[in-house]
Design a protein around this nucleic acid. Structure first.
Length: 310
DNA sequence: CGTATGCCCTGCGCGC
DNA sequence: TGCGCGCAGGGCATAC
């Protein structure tokens, strides 16, 4: 599940391989992964245009072309955008192929077909609504403790739900929200507005440090993620709570517990992150089937599941 | 406006 | 061994 650090890693690994290259031909295998405009216009606009820059906002990858086009790509749960040779066998989930003038291909694969493309002109028409309402970049100078305080103010929802809201803060997903809240010693079910100034300050610093470290480690390969060169990220083995149900808390040794908060699997240290008054304290019913949810033996650290064959 | 719910889609672990 | 069920999740539309 690509969040900010993974999308940033994809951006960095694609940059040198894309900027300056021209799209010779666009092959749309699954039309529904092109959300805007219609496939024929999409192809016609892009063919013959060169990549000029690669940017990122939150979890959106912004591929700039010529001097007036922006190709917006969102990977959602299982999207992959990567460079490869034309000879590479096509995966059954290959949906769009951009044939480049240097002989390489930029491919979009997506098992769950949740992600895809929006092509924007100078007016920004067709922009995904979430990009329009996106909150501050957590790693930018604009993101101050005051900005976080404002985002949490007046919101009675669990703080985890607010942090997952991309209009509050851009780029956080399930993994790094759990990690940031653990780092700040704040329970995810705490009403967002109930955080003290000190807790808000801590949470702000933790959001930044967790994301910075994850970018340094080139993201987390938990299930399906790999970067623009097909490589896995290294952050998994530094995760403190996410996917560590039953394993000892790195800070106090208490077993990590899995709960459901805002309909999301949520990992907490019950000792380090005190539950709010009146919170449902019983652990989330262990859902069968999710890889990694099995209670880990303390002596044995969880093993990352890495996609094979890249 | 803030909050809650269901949908999209598919691979996978589990129960039988 | 094989089959079917139901869960997982980010963003968005829709409803309150």
């Amino acid at each position: 599940m690509p969040e900010l650090p993974e999308v940033e890693t994809v951006r960095r690994t694609l940059y040198d391989k894309l900027v300056g290259r021209t799209i010779a031909r666009v092959e749309i295998i699954t039309p529904r992964q092109v959300y805007h405009p219609d496939p024929d216009t999409f192809r016609a606009e892009l063919e013959g245009i060169a990549f000029t820059d690669l940017k990122r906002r939150g979890k959106y990858l912004l591929l700039e072309l010529g001097d007036r086009l922006t190709l917006v790509c969102h990977l959602r749960m299982s999207g992959h955008l990567f460079i490869c040779d034309p000879g590479r066998p096509r995966d059954k989930h290959t949906h769009v192929i951009f044939h480049l003038n240097d002989g390489k291909e930029l491919r979009y694969e997506d098992q769950r077909k949740f992600g895809g493309f929006h092509l924007l002109g100078p007016t920004g028409e067709g922009m995904p609504p979430g990009l329009r309402t996106l909150g501050p970049e957590p790693l930018s100078d604009d993101f101050t403790p005051q900005v976080l305080e404002q985002a949490l103010a007046g919101r009675r929802s669990p703080v985890k739900a607010v942090l997952l809201d991309q209009s509050a803060v851009a780029g956080l997903g399930n993994i790094y929200v759990d990690e940031a809240l653990f780092c700040a010693r704040v329970h995810p079910e705490r009403p967002a507005e109930s955080l003290s100034p000190d807790e808000t300050y801590r949470l702000h610093g933790c959001i930044r440090s967790v994301l910075e470290r994850a970018v340094e480690r080139r993201g987390t390969t938990f299930s399906l993620y790999f970067d623009g060169e097909g490589k896995s990220g290294d952050m998994y083995d530094e995760l403190q709570v996410f996917d560590r149900t039953g394993a000892p808390c790195p800070r106090c040794g208490a077993p990590i517990v899995k709960l459901a908060v805002a309909q999301r699997g949520t990992h907490v240290c019950p000792a380090c992150q005190p539950a709010p008054e009146g919170a449902r304290l019983q652990p989330r019913r262990a859902t069968p089937g999710r890889r990694g949810d099995s209670v880990a033996v303390a002596a044995e650290p969880p093993k990352p599941y890495k996609k094979k064959g890249d």
